[in-house]
């Protein structure tokens, strides 16, 4: 009993105090870190428990020199077997429901095909095949924030970001802090993946099948954008930067780079 209590306390301590994650820079990163801490604690308890049991058994029940004879003729123990079927089942069920809750809080259950890309240049309604998409119209009503639409094109071996607002084409993603960003992504050649470790978000960028990724950055800084799907010889070099800046700085960047076209209203 004492050993079990120590084990649970130790596992929880490891799970809550050992930080293996990078900086967090988006609204959903702390939600992810919460899930990580829970999984890490459960994992640490299970792993240390099994490790302890195996090492204890090997030492306690080792065959000493010159010892003959056999172990106990124990073929099974139904209550024990039911117990260790039930405990993992309950743990797994809890983890599953909990991660569903996390996923929903990250906006994963939103209907992807309602995202309001209609004010973008692409007028035709296209099916969205995957991603994390809080429907932008819902975000509007919730927080009164107008999401920033960005169209992402991936190619061997670069990302291109197009801002319909101002018709800017850039290789470096600039986003203002605190404002939701709604990205619609498609690839020109092979499959790539858009990954920002500090946002805890990744989504494949697929030729012929648009995907979306919504996030709200909440920490000023420069973070790497990494391609996470093998895309050819220079896959390791396919990196870019996302610059999260204060709204003023973002606005001046936007106005400095936007093409002064008459169509802009």
């Amino acid at each position: 009993m004492l050993a079990v209590a120590c084990l649970i306390a130790g596992g929880l301590w490891i799970g809550l105090h050992v930080n293996l994650l990078p900086d967090s820079a988006s609204v959903n990163a702390p939600i992810y870190d919460e899930l990580f801490k829970v999984l890490f604690s459960i994992g640490a308890i299970l792993f240390l428990g099994m490790l302890g049991l195996v090492i204890y058994s090997l030492i306690r029940f080792r065959r000493r020199d010159g010892e003959t004879g056999e172990g106990i003729a124990l073929e099974g123990n139904l209550p024990l077997e039911i117990l260790w079927t039930a405990i993992p089942a309950v743990v797994v069920l809890f983890v599953g429901l909990y991660s569903y809750d996390i996923y929903e809080r990250m906006g994963g259950m939103e209907n992807m095909n309602q995202s309001s890309h209609d004010h973008s240049s692409m007028k035709t309604e296209q099916r969205i095949w995957g991603g994390i998409g809080a429907s932008t119209s819902q975000l509007d009503s919730q927080r009164g924030l107008n999401p920033l639409p960005v169209e992402v094109t991936a190619m061997q071996f670069a990302f291109l970001f197009h801002y319909p607002q101002g018709d800017i084409l850039t290789g470096e993603l600039h986003v203002p802090i605190g404002r939701p960003v709604s990205m619609k992504m498609e690839s020109n050649d092979v499959i790539h993946a858009f990954w920002v470790p500090e946002f805890r978000l990744k989504q494949d960028v697929i030729p012929g099948q648009p995907t979306i990724l919504n996030f709200t950055p909440n920490k000023v800084g420069k973070y790497p954008i990494i391609c996470a799907e093998l895309c050819g010889p220079y896959h390791g070099g396919m990196r870019s930067t996302v610059v999260v800046e204060e709204p003023d700085a973002f606005d001046s960047w936007l106005s400095k780079n936007s093409k002064q076209t008459a169509s802009e209203t």
Binding site: Y32, L35, Y103, G108, A193, R200, K202, A228
Partner: peptide
């Protein structure tokens, strides 16, 4: 777990 995998996949 989907949310976990989204960060560490690949």
């Amino acid at each position: 777990q989907v949310p976990f995998d989204i960060h560490v996949h690949d």
